[in-house]
C-alpha cells in the first residue's frame, strides 16, 4: 500500500524493504549522470589496488536509494532532508537491503521522520541515516 496523506501514516510503520540495483552497469550509469568518474566506483580491480574491497557504490548513490525508497512508499512525499552516515563500504555487485521506519509524526504539518538503514545479507549495517519528509495533509 502506498501513502497518500499523513492520515495514512502510523508511528513505527515499516516502509517496504527496497533492494537497490548495485550492479556495475547501473553504478556506471549513475556515475555518468552525477559526473563522478573515479575508477574506485566503476572498476573493481582499480578499487582493490586502492585497498578497497571492490568498486564502491558512491555514497551519494546510497543516499539516492534512500530517497527513492521513500517515494516508492509515499509517491507524493516531499523529501526535505536526508542525513546519512556511511559506516562501512557498500560494494558494487553485492546485495543490500534498505529498511525504513517512521519514528516521528507531526499530523498537523504533515512532517514525518524516518530512520533508514542499508544492511548487507549478513544483517550488518553499512549506512544509516534519517530523513525528514513532508506528506500531503489532505
Amino acid at each position: 500500500m502506498t501513502i497518500a496523506t499523513i492520515k495514512d501514516v502510523e508511528f513505527g510503520e515499516e516502509l517496504p524493504v527496497f533492494d537497490p540495483d548495485t550492479s556495475l552497469e547501473n553504478v556506471k550509469k549513475f556515475a555518468t549522470a552525477a559526473h563522478w568518474f573515479g575508477p574506485r566506483f566503476t572498476d573493481h580491480e582499480a578499487a582493490r589496488k586502492e585497498g578497497l574491497p571492490g568498486a564502491l557504490v558512491p555514497g551519494i548513490m546510497s543516499q539516492g536509494f534512500l530517497a527513492a525508497m521513500i517515494h516508492r512508499w509515499a509517491p507524493q512525499a516531499n523529501v526535505q532532508n536526508v542525513d546519512t552516515v556511511f559506516r562501512a563500504p557498500v560494494v558494487v555487485d553485492e546485495k543490500y537491503h534498505i529498511t525504513g521506519v517512521v519514528t516521528d509524526i507531526d499530523e498537523a504539518s504533515g512532517r514525518v521522520e524516518i530512520d533508514l538503514t542499508v544492511t548487507n545479507d549478513a544483517g550488518e549495517t553499512r549506512v544509516f541515516g534519517t530523513a525528514q519528509v513532508q506528506i500531503p495533509t489532505g
Partner: peptide, 17 residues
C-alpha cells in the same frame, strides 16, 4: 556527532513498539 536520534523519539519508540 554521529547520533541521529532525538531522545523523545527513543521514548516514543520504546513504548509504541
Amino acid at each position: 556527532d554521529d547520533g541521529r536520534a532525538k531522545v523523545p523519539n527513543y521514548c516514543q519508540w520504546i513504548r509504541a513498539r
